[in-house]
């Protein structure tokens, strides 16, 4: 990802609009003073952060992607609820059934925002916690290690999410 090239004007405008909308969400007030303050703040922030703002390219909101976003949401929600019942089972049982270890795998995603989403999703799914991401290698703390082979870890931990993220963000 090349961040040193100069961003275009429409890129600035798009960042500005998203941050302004976020400001409206924070204040939830329709008074003109709020809107003007929001515009000034959003202009400043978009000027500084436009290089790192790669989460919400307009092309991602194409209709065929919306289906995948919804699918991702439900897969993630199911995993989150399962993770919580898993935690409840482990915490409440008297002898603490854990067999922890740190394992690693390599991802196929290129987009940095997609990598962050994958890391966050792995943290919130049953029994896994992202310790670090070095280039394309994820280091995962696994509370109940079943395998340490990177490919098997990849299939077990990352595949349900990365399958959908690859559809949205491409390889």
């Amino acid at each position: 990802m090349n961040t040193s090239r100069k961003p275009s004007v429409s890129r600035y405008l798009y960042t500005f609009l998203i941050i302004w909308l976020l400001w409206y969400g924070f204040t939830t007030s329709l008074q003109p003073a709020e809107w003007i303050t929001g515009a000034v703040v959003a202009a400043l922030i978009s000027f500084v952060t436009v290089r790192y703002f790669e989460c919400c390219d307009p092309i991602l909101f194409a209709p065929k992607h919306i289906v995948w976003f919804v699918a991702y949401f439900f897969v993630f929600l199911l995993a989150l609820v399962k993770a919580n019942f898993d935690v409840a089972r482990r915490v409440l049982s008297p002898q603490l059934p854990i067999n922890p270890g740190v394992v690693k795998f390599k991802t196929r995603l290129k987009n940095r925002f997609a990598r962050m989403v994958l890391a966050n999703s792995i943290t919130l799914t049953p029994g896994t916690l992202t310790v670090d991401v070095v280039d394309d290698t994820y280091y995962i703390h696994w509370i109940d290690v079943k395998t340490t082979e990177p490919d098997a870890v990849y299939r077990e931990v990352a595949w349900p999410f990365e399958r959908i993220l690859l559809k949205i963000y491409g390889e």
Partner: peptide, 24 residues
């Protein structure tokens, strides 16, 4: 349950596991 996990688990990483998922 998250706070109980924070209290009961044997080391920092397991505490983070329980604490983060349940509290989120």
């Amino acid at each position: 349950l998250g706070a109980l996990g924070i209290y009961r688990m044997p080391d920092l990483y397991n505490r983070l596991q329980a604490g983060t998922k349940a509290s989120t």
